[in-house]
Amino acid sequence: MYLTDSLRELIAGRLGRFEQRGLSATDSRRAAVALALIEEGTGALLPGIDAPTAWSRSAAVLLTRRSARLRNHPGQWALPGGSIDDSESPEQAALRELHEEVGLRLEETSILGRLDDFVTRSGFSITPIVVWAGEARELEPSASEVASIHRIPVSEFMRADAPWLDPIEDSEQPVLRMPVGLTWIAAPTAAFIYQFREVCIAGRTTRVAHFEQPMFARQ
């Protein structure tokens, strides 16, 4: 799957027809994340994922590993994002965080649409914004927030063994994880990626807000 104009039109069209569900919870803080479609390029390697032999135009999702020095969710997989300022829309916040965390500045014309909100156990109501990032060859991780930047091929998220659904003692709903190479990503990030796969690539309306997070992601 290549990052082409036809793919952009396909995803924008499916998001345009998708009935996005906004959620809120008492005392939750509003946040936004950017699910950025980007060329695979030569991003940081992961066990079990082959590196491209040259700069690749295959479609990928931009992910980060959070800095181990952060107070909240240190070292975890994440989409670039953070709290929404009072004067911002979720789209504006997602683009701002994308620039602050990985040095990628995009215009509002790059926005393709929204996926469903997800209320986390740690007290955030997160709106995922799907954006078109193109080549984005020059990325720079924020020294204070990001340990590493990764371009994960979209094909990796289409694996037949995904998602993984694990029972957890304190909830009737399972924990959702997405396998990546020889490792995995947990909800809420995994929930956004899974819904992106289902809605934007497979063309299936799939809800994810009910899935649980593992205990370590609730802090």
Rank of each mutant, 00 (worst) to 15 (best):
A186M: 00
H150D: 07
H150E: 10
I149H: 03
S155A: 14
E145H: 07
E172H: 08
M158L: 14
P179R: 05
I185N: 04
E145Y: 08
A187Y: 01
A147Y: 02
E156R: 06
R177L: 00
P128Y: 08
P179V: 03
F157I: 03
R137C: 06
S122F: 15
D161I: 08
P167F: 04
R121T: 10
S142Q: 03
R159C: 07
S144K: 13
R151P: 05
L182A: 13
P188K: 06
E140K: 15
G134H: 15
P167V: 09
S144N: 08
G181L: 10
I149W: 01
E135G: 15
D170Q: 12
P128Q: 10
A147W: 04
R151W: 01
S125G: 10
S144E: 13
I152L: 03
I168G: 10
I152N: 00
A162T: 06
P141M: 09
E169N: 14
L176P: 00
I129Q: 07
S148K: 05
E140R: 14
G134D: 15
V154Q: 00
S155M: 10
I149N: 01
W132F: 14
R177Y: 03
P174D: 05
D161S: 13
E169I: 15
R137G: 11
V175G: 00
A143V: 12
L176G: 02
R121I: 06
S125I: 10
A187E: 04
V130E: 09
D166W: 13
I149A: 04
R121M: 09
I149E: 02
H150F: 13
D166H: 12
S171W: 07
A147N: 07
R151D: 01
G123I: 10
L165G: 05
P128S: 12
P174N: 03
V154P: 04
R159V: 05
V154L: 03
S125N: 12
I149D: 01
G123T: 11
R159T: 05
F157L: 06
E145F: 07
S155Y: 09
A187N: 03
A160M: 11
W132K: 14
A147K: 04
E145R: 08
Q173P: 06
V146P: 00
F124W: 13
M158A: 11
P174M: 05
M178T: 02
I168V: 13
S148T: 02
R151S: 05
E140T: 15
D161K: 10
T127D: 12
S171I: 09
A187S: 09
V131F: 11
A162P: 04
I149G: 05
T127H: 13
L176H: 00
S125V: 09
M158K: 07
Q173R: 13
R151K: 07
V154E: 04
E156F: 07
S171F: 06
W132Q: 15
R121N: 12
G123L: 13
A187M: 03
D166E: 15
P163S: 10
